[in-house]
Structure formats: structure tokens, C-alpha cells
Write a protein that binds this DNA or RNA. Structure first.
Lengths: 352, 352
DNA sequence: CGATCCACTCAAAGCGCTTTGGAAGACATC
DNA sequence: GATGTCTTCCAAAGCGCTTTGAGTGGATCG
């Protein structure tokens, strides 16, 4: 069943039927009802490809999803996607996943732009200085970046959290608790959010006349296993840290396992602050020792980015093109005074 | 840049250019090279919408992803998706995500089928008796089901694991270890895989003259928190179980937390077997007590289903339309002889 | 040397929709 | 009754591709 048949059936022209369906005013309300009735009867649905060809709009937004060797599934991406799709469904927009190996990404974007398969794209896993952004700017394809570059000018539409601020806050909290020796279990060091978090921590430390010992910094994929191994390595140091920053609760999961295995107690011998992207299936507050976190829902970010992408397509650019969200610092039991620290000599010191 | 301009540029007809690009034999190799060269120079990409309209094929497969209130992101879905997309990228196929609330799913499928936006669809979260399958059969849209119905005839293309078999195996192992009191932390009870797992366990038990105490069965979303609460409830029973089956490692994560909190030891006072979908970021072997699992990679399932979907579109149906994978039973440290059990009186009995 | 065949190329007809540029009829205005 | 103005509808022209059916010219054959 296509438009022509439907029109013939109704003894109307294609034009009128099309207009009736697309809500144009110049069609009699009675006629419109007749058309809608016929649509219901026949189960007619417009052919998407034809619509696209005729209008040039696709009603879909593209996700270029990184794949390839070593690219494990990313929990964070999935949660983000869930936010995106929530908005997409409400606006009758499809999400088109274009898995692409990192080295093919440029080609993929060019194909998307030139082939007109999507109205807009979303970009993430931003690197320190990311050529893909310049590419997208040159491509006349609306986009919103999740994250941002470290060095360049921020003259493109983006949504990011204040990673540096969050980890500076976390670091300052630990400094106040008397900690002096810090470690950082971070994400891969080519990712800009990992760099920003590192910088935030480093700046807060240097304000206190301290520095991050490179031996106490790990950059790795954010898996439980890497969290475990990283923490083990830290605890095996001659002079182990008393405070650990951690870029994900999934890393923390492993880190906590290592801590438990060593018979240490979080918030006592060792303090830990993790960044919490807010996963419904793994909550920082439910760790055996509830975790102090910097919290920002990655799902909310997905929702907001979808809204903005849809806006961009409709020609309504968000007013501040650069949107930076503060992360909340949520203090729970995994942080406590530094052992042996004289300053906030807490009641909770174990009577060793 | 479109086909016509490109053809004009090359002083060839659209036909010839199109054929050169699509690998038809009746075009001179020199000509083909000239065309390819021009494509490289101009950056020409065929318009997808036009291609679709002309060929009727979309080169994309649809995922109807459940969303809506209470539908949390599903780890398992994300990992599956990663497998799907790996194959998709290799075949130049797009994945089109159609988020849809459960009550709108029928409409969504009809729209996909009639609108021709995808060549094939994938269906999961199968329920005991699932009307969507009948719908898809009637829709002349190729599909592959991930999972299967409990009751109906299996006359549709599907891929599933032997859930009942896996949990029967797990149960028998625990029976051999002398366990008599079983619990089950399962997924939501409208999902067919949860039902099958329950049946598998129940059958193995009844073969031993035992039964699952309904008070020791939980059906819930598979989150850490539900695992924790479920296990707590089990341990608070007047007569707590000594063996626990668990439908996901993420549930186990919470369950293990509860066990630790109660000062119990896995493989000693309590044995646990979880189903492991093989997440790269959370491995059953890395739990503080490595978990005995029934293992089957959900990512591999994604890969296989993508292959089959692509095959269906190409007109090559998989030979056995119903593909059932056995899960491996991997014995690790979380299972041990039942406490107080006389049968396999183990060396490892705590000297209470 | 004309007939036959092959390799190569082309013009044109769709695919199913939207949208432009009217046109017909109804109604009001002068 | 002529003119103008809405309202409602239509015919036809694309959108950019694939594919059918029909040539070309040159090589091969009898």
C-alpha cells in the first residue's frame, strides 16, 4: 500500500492525501478525517526512504560507536545510549549506530555527511586534541560533542561535566582529611576526560604544595579487573597511598576487592573517592563501604544531548553552545581522616 | 556531488558510473578505474535514501529496544549489542535502534515493516508466550529471535542458550555436593529465560525428590542492589539455603556483598552458582571468591545473530533455524560441599 | 565481405514521497 | 454580473539512485 493507491482508493490526489497526513492547513477537516480513516483501515505507512529522498531529512541521528580490537563494551556508553534513546523515541527519531574502528572514523563521518543517512551526529570519547571535531565543523552536519578537547578553543556545540573541578573538589576533601599521599586509578590517558580529571587533582594538590607521584597513577580501561590490579600495585608500593581517586565505580569495584583482600578498611587505612556515572545496576551507596563519589548521571547527559541534537536539526541551536555540568560531591563512608594524620585526629582512629 | 554530476564530469552515463561502482562485470576495467579515481577526487558518496528507494533494500537491521518507566539500562543488552555491531560494521550494515515502550511495540514493528526502514529485525526479552513473534511471522520482515517462548511451537528463527539445561547442570552439581536447600535469585518472571532456568533447576531437584521453596525464589531486575537484598532476605530465613543459583553475575555481586557482610564464606557455609554472560569489565573468576558459573558469551550470541540476520536478508536462511547453545559449567571456588553434609565429607570442613 | 557476437555504453523508466504552481468552485464585494 | 478572495484540490516536477532494454563499434567467423 503506497500513497498512490491510497489516493486512488479515496478518490483524491496524492497531494491532498500527503497534505492531510502531514498536517497542512489547506485541507478540509472532513477530508483529513476520511484520509486518516483510510490509513487506519489499510495500515498504510509512508515509505521512509521515499520521504527521506523527497525531504532531505532523515529523522535520525547517527552514533559513531567505537569498535575494534581492544574496544570492550563500555558500560558508560550503554547508559548514555539509554538516555539518548529515551528522548529519541519521544520525537520519532531513529538512532543509527555506525560502529567504526577508530582509524575509519573519519571515513565514516564523511560517509554519513555526504550520504545523508543522518540529520545529525553525536561524538564522544574525545581526545586531548581531536581531529574529528575539526572534521565535523567542516562537514555541515549538525553535531553535539559529549566531552571536550583539552587544548583547543571551545567553539563547537558540546556538553561536558566539569571533570577537573570534580576531581579538584575530591582532592581537596581528602587534603582536608589530612591525606598527603595520593593515587589515581584513571581511564586511558588519551581520553580528554581522564586528562581533565588528572589535571584537576594535580592542581588541587599543587595548591597544597603536593604532587601526584607518577608511580601512583594508572591509566587503563575501566574494568573491575583493572581496578583490582591497579589497587594491588598501589598497595604493594614501598610507600602506599592513603588516598585513592578513581574514575569509575566499576574500577572501584576491583579496587575495593583488593583493599578487602589486604584486610584494609576503606575510610580508615585507606580513603577512596570514585566518579559515579550513576548506573542503576551498580550503586556507589551500596558498596560494602558506601563510596564517596563525584556524581553526574551519564544518562541525563544522554537525554540532554538528544534534546540538543534534535534541536539542532530543527534549526534551534541551544543558547549556550557549551554546556558544562558540575558534578556533585557526595560524601559517604569511604573517606576518612588520613591514618596517623594529626590534623583532624578523629575519634574513629583504630586503637592499634 | 551526486551521480549525475559525477557522470557528467567523467563524460559517462549515470548507468555506467553506477555499474562501475557497484561492481557489475560489463564495464571496462579502465573505465572503472577512472570512475573510482573521480570518486576519490570528489568525495562522492551515494545518497542512501535514494539507494534505498531504488533497490528496496536498506542495509540496516532494526533493534526494537525496550524503554520506558522501570526499564533500566540492561548490561546484557549492551554487551549483546556490541557483538551485533561488530558484524554489522563488517558488512556495511547499519543498526537502527527503535526504542519503544512495551505497549507500543506492536505499532513499532508494523511501522518498521510497512515503512521499509529496515531489512530485518531482532527480537529479545522474550516472554513465556510472546505475541510479538506471531506478529513478526505475519509481517514478511525477516527476523531472528534471541531466546524463545516457553510453550509454543518453535517454528521461527531463533538463537538461544539451553537455559534449562544449564541450570539443571548447576543444580545437579550442587546436589552432588550434598546440598538440599536451594534458593534462586532470578530475573523478572515474565521473561522466558528466567522461566526456563527455574524449570531446569526445579526438574533437577525433583529428580532428587526435592523442590524449590517458593520463599527462596526471587524474581527481580538484575542489579547489584537486588542481588544484595535478595541474598539478605534468604539469609534471614529461619532455615536459610546452603545453595544459591543466580541468574547474573551482577546479581551475584550484590549477593556476595550480603554474604560477606554476614561473615559467611562462599564455597563453605554457602555455595553459589551464577550465570555468566561474559562481561569484559566484570569477570566471574575475579570475584574475591571466584564464582562457579554457567557460562555463555552474550556477545557471541550478538555476533551470531547479526550473521544470521544478514544472511536472512541476503536470502540465505541458516540451516537449522533453531539454534540452541549449551552453556559451559565452570567450577570455581564458590561451590563446595554442603555444610554438615555427610556424603562428600570434605577435607575443607570448618572445624567448628 | 557480410553476418555474428561480444564488450561496452547509453537513454529512460521507475522507486514513493513532497512540494510547486496552478485551477476550480464557493462565496463575498462592488 | 464582473471582480476578487478564500478554500480546497490537483497535475506534474523533482529527490538521486538502480535497472531495463537498446544501441554502438570493433573483433571474429564462415
Amino acid at each position: 500500500m503506497n500513497l498512490r493507491e491510497l489516493a486512488r482508493l479515496l478518490d483524491l490526489s496524492q497531494t491532498t492525501v500527503s497534505r492531510a497526513l502531514n498536517g497542512y492547513p489547506e485541507v478540509n477537516e472532513d477530508t483529513r478525517q476520511r484520509v486518516l480513516q483510510a490509513v487506519r483501515m489499510t495500515g498504510y505507512r509512508p515509505n521512509r526512504a521515499a520521504q527521506r529522498l523527497a525531504t532531505g531529512r532523515t529523522n535520525s541521528i547517527g552514533l559513531v560507536m567505537p569498535t575494534g580490537a581492544g574496544r570492550d563494551t563500555d558500560l558508560h556508553f550503554a547508559e548514555f545510549l539509554s538516555g539518548l534513546s529515551e528522548v529519541a523515541v519521544g520525537n520519532d527519531v531513529q538512532l543509527v549506530i555506525n560502529p567504526s574502528r577508530i582509524e575509519d572514523e573519519e571515513a565514516t563521518f564523511r560517509r554519513l555527511a555526504a550520504g545523508g543517512s543522518v540529520d545529525a551526529v553525536y561524538l564522544s570519547y574525545i581526545r586531548r586534541s581531536d581531529p574529528r571535531i575539526a572534521l565535523l565543523k567542516s562537514l555541515s552536519l549538525p553535531f553535539v560533542v559529549h566531552g571536550r578537547e583539552i587544548d583547543g578553543v571551545l567553539d563547537y556545540p558540546l556538553l561536558d561535566i566539569d571533570n577537573a573541578g570534580a576531581f579538584a573538589d575530591a582532592t581537596r576533601l581528602l587534603l582536608q582529611l589530612g591525606h598527603r599521599r595520593f593515587a589515581f586509578l584513571n581511564a586511558a590517558d588519551h581520553l580528554s576526560f581522564a586528562i581533565a580529571r588528572h589535571q584537576g587533582a594535580a592542581e588541587a594538590l599543587s595548591a597544597a604544595g603536593l604532587a601526584l607521584d607518577p608511580a601512583l597513577v594508572q591509566n587503563s580501561p575501566m574494568t573491575e579487573e583493572h581496578g583490582y590490579r591497579g589497587m594491588m600495585r598501589l598497595l604493594d608500593q614501598a610507600e602506599p597511598p592513603t588516598a585513592v581517586l578513581c574514575s569509575s565505580v566499576i574500577l572501584s569495584l576491583g579496587a575495593v576487592r583488593a583493599v578487602n583482600e589486604r584486610g584494609l578498611r576503606l575510610g580508615r587505612e585507606l580513603s577512596l573517592i570514585a566518579h559515579d556515572d550513576v548506573f542503576p545496576y551498580l550503586k556507589a551507596e551500596n558498596f560494602s563501604t558506601p563510596l564517596t563519589t563525584t556524581r553526574s548521571s551519564i544518562r541525563q547527559a544522554g537525554i540532554r544531548i538528544a534534546e540538543r541534537l534534535i534541536g539542532e536539526v530543527a534549526g534551534i541551536a541551544a543558547d549556550p553552545q557549551q554546556e558544562i555540568w558540575k558534578a556533585d560531591l557526595i560524601v559517604r563512608a569511604s573517606t576518612g581522616p588520613a591514618p596517623g594524620s594529626s590534623r583532624p585526629k578523629a575519634r574513629a582512629q583504630a586503637p592499634t
